[in-house]
Design a protein around this nucleic acid. Structure first.
Lengths: 218, 218
DNA sequence: TAATGTTTTAAACGATCGTTTGAATTAATG
DNA sequence: CATTAATTCAAACGATCGTTTAAAACATTA
């Protein structure tokens, strides 16, 4: 077993604790206790608690988002001149991050953290997340447009929003669900979970758009 | 304008701040400053910060959950001996809480708070929320079973989970979405938002269940 | 009005927070 | 080996946290 450097020890401990309890509920002293490093090491290596959080996120999120874009590119190539398939777009979006969940090294901690982050209203964090996701948002927005040529742009945006909620909740609260359904949402069940999420969200995207009961205003 | 009692002033301020920044990020001193009451009043009236949070939630959540059950009961009666309609079940679940969002008194604060709470990993809060939702979970679980007689129980549970994520995200991050789509998710748009969420989630519930590519394990 | 119960208040409690400092230690470089 | 740079460390900084106390102010009832 080779020596793990201080930076990594801090990142691992912070990842675990932030995912478990949230950013504000975790102190740097909690983190250095788990990481078994000195308190001042956090500021030496990362500068601040907020900067540490950003590093915790980007360390795992960047490779995941790269792979999302790769998978989408592959799906495009495979489709050729045929229409891009909605299920392929969704799989490109879900699979890389859910596979990170099954990875014993990153573990369930990180994906849970990502789920939490989506619902966190830490302004700096939101700005940071948006910047990390810029390219993914652009490319997948285009992809949804292509895969759903008969759906209005506004509706696509709303349904992308709903889809993001379903995904985030599943990432964050997978444990609640396994209590619920007796199936465990990890390991070999990974593909099944992703397939279930694809089925549901694809069904949602393809649902008929009903006109509202009465648009009294305007 | 009649005098607002201290308890209500604290509840209102806490609701606003918890929704804005989250439980851990808000101090009692932040709350009493907004509420314009003495710091010790919080413990005098509520006992602790955690107990205050529970009260903030239950004050608005209980009437909402009562109305959800009422609407579900009405939907059942209207259906008579016909099969309960999925859209009616979903509307019973969504409408009462989204209407609270449009209510200028409760405002967007509370629903955002509820959205956040779903993703919060405060153990005591989770237990409390579960106890507040017991009857709703029982009745709506039954209703989904009735409305989807051809869908396996396990699949219903998973899809209920996805649906909850879509709902929570919409409650919590409605503002992000209105930036996105230029439509505003309040006021007269209430019915439209709910209808969109019904369309999406109903489509998800009704989607075909695809067998996983290969169930290698087992 | 006197007595009793309820609510509000200022002040302090010990604990913990993120961050900074400067010296001790280790690693790298000439 | 000497010197410089990088890292670790114990200790402390001021600020803020949730909670408690006990007296003051107010309201209610006899």
């Amino acid at each position: 077993m080779l020596k793990v450097d201080t930076k990594t020890k801090i990142l691992d401990a912070a990842e675990k604790l932030f995912a478990q309890k949230g950013f504000d509920a975790v102190s740097l002293r909690n983190i250095v206790e788990i990481a078994k490093v000195n308190l001042a090491a956090v500021h030496y290596h990362f500068g601040s608690k907020q900067a540490l959080l950003h590093k915790v996120v980007s360390r795992r999120f960047r490779p995941i988002n790269k792979e999302r874009l790769n998978m989408l590119e592959n799906a495009r190539n495979k489709a050729g001149k045929n229409k891009l398939k909605l299920e392929a777009v969704l799989e490109s979006l879900f699979f890389p991050i859910f596979r990170a969940q099954a990875n014993p090294k990153a573990g369930i901690s990180f994906t849970r953290l990502i789920g939490r982050v989506v619902f966190d209203r830490n302004k700096e964090l939101q700005k940071f997340m948006l910047s990390e996701l810029t390219e993914v948002i652009i490319q997948f927005s285009k992809a949804f447009d292509e895969a759903l040529p008969n759906l209005e742009k506004t509706e696509i945006d709303w349904r992308s929003h709903f889809m993001a909620g379903a995904m985030a909740h599943t990432l964050c609260n997978a444990d609640l669900l396994s209590d619920f359904t007796k199936t465990n949402a990890n390991d070999s069940e990974l593909e099944i979970t992703v397939q279930r999420l694809i089925d549901f969200t694809a069904g949602g995207f393809r649902a008929k758009v009903s006109k509202t009961p009465n648009t009294k205003k305007r």
